[in-house]
Design a binder for these strands. Structure first.
Lengths: 231, 231
DNA sequence: CGATGCTTTGAATCTCGTCAAGATGTGTGG
DNA sequence: CCACACATCTTGACGAGATTCAAAGCATCG
């Protein structure tokens, strides 16, 4: 039985996911009743910029990214999304960013209105949604700091630290990088060439190594942490 | 009678301020009951980083800034605050940033718990607080985009656009800059020298002029807008 | 009116971006 | 399973833009 054939009401929400933390079985069942499991292949959009949409998504498997294009065509990657992450909550009518899958992604889709109405009867759910929003803001402020203050190789180290903290399965021994160098560059406000050169520099200094093109190993964690400069 | 002598209950909250929008007289009175009017002289902290605190502030007069220092001592200005702005809402135990006044500031101080408890009975107040948080996030995402993608003079134009949108009293004819060049530099991820040179360049191209050191005039609004590149 | 701090300008340096070429994977069809 | 085509990634050379260091101009405040 593949995931998309599971009837929503019997879906097992992982309880360590931010949205579901501390919820009772009844609350989880209410959530499951309004959740639809979606599957997208790689390089598909969950939603696009400048569109009206009232869905929010909760990633179950796979990786995605949040991107914004400016009117002049420049692209900024605002975040990478991993299993458990929650995206799409918005107060404005139009999407200010798009969400694109990097790998095949399975995600629960909720109607924002229905989700909000559930918060009326579940203070814990409301709390969880507030926490999620707060984490999104905290991440954005970290990114502001990095982009405003750090050099290329320091930004790479910040990225590595973020992966270690937020990517399920990431260890010092192996981090999987499902995104392209271009995605990394657009996230860190650099060019592909600079990303490549900075990785080369960090390898030369034995701070990291890249066993494969999309694999990364942390050789000197203290140094990565020091360069990332986030407490 | 100076502002700090006004008994809180009779304070006239400006209704165009985000927190008070659409509230009934009764709701405003409830808010006034828990508000304390604070006055700080220039270059004082409303709160500092890494401290526990449960107050939120609503600026009435004056200008302030939000700053973050890293462990290595680098400083990023996260925002400038103007009358009507609201700051300090937080989910984490410790302050992730400090708020420093640039001019003399008067501000209402609320206890976060009390404020949140008021939202139980006032859906409009809850809505307003959600809007405020959303605007803070939107601003942070704009800043990420600017820091990641734009050149120095484009960042200056972004700043000018932000002042025009958010600073009460700012017009094309005159924008008052109560902050130092260092503050601007730390906000835009540049050095003072680069800020100065970029201003000089924009003046040379007749896009702006600086009648005084802390005054700025927009000479070519379309160009400023184009360079700022935010829709 | 001098002292102090902020701002501007200049020159040298460095980092990063751009352009171009070559290397390394990845996927496809034979 | 191999060979070719296409994507992506890396590396090099060069130039533009930003930082650094230094000095000089301007305010403001006693």
């Amino acid at each position: 039985m593949t995931p998309n054939e599971l009837p929503p009401a019997t879906v097992n929400f992982g309880r360590n996911y931010a949205l579901y933390k501390g919820l009772s079985d009844a609350e989880l069942r209410d959530l499951a009743d309004i959740a639809k499991l979606r599957i997208r292949s790689e390089q598909q959009y969950l939603f696009t910029q400048h569109t009206t949409a009232d869905q929010v998504f909760n990633l179950v498997t796979g990786t995605a990214l949040v991107e914004r294009m400016s009117s002049s065509g420049r692209r900024q990657v605002l975040a990478f999304l991993f299993p458990g992450d929650f995206v799409g909550l918005s107060n404005s009518d139009l999407r200010e960013y798009a969400v694109k899958t990097l790998t095949e992604v399975t995600a629960y889709e909720f109607n924002q209105q229905k989700l909000r109405s559930l918060t009326e009867t579940s203070p814990q759910l409301k709390e969880n949604m507030k926490d999620i929003s707060a984490n999104v803001l905290a991440h954005a402020l970290d990114q502001v700091f990095i982009l405003g203050q750090k050099k290329a190789d320091e930004r790479i180290c910040f990225l590595v630290m973020m992966f270690l903290q937020r990517m399920p399965g990431a260890t010092l021994e192996h981090i999987d990088l499902p995104m392209t160098r271009q995605d990394i560059a657009d996230y860190l406000g650099l060019t592909v060439e600079t990303v490549s050169r900075s990785l080369a520099k960090l390898k030369r200094e034995n701070i990291i190594s890249t066993p494969s093109r999309h694999g990364l190993r942390v050789e000197d964690y203290d140094e990565v942490r020091r360069l990332a400069d986030i407490e």
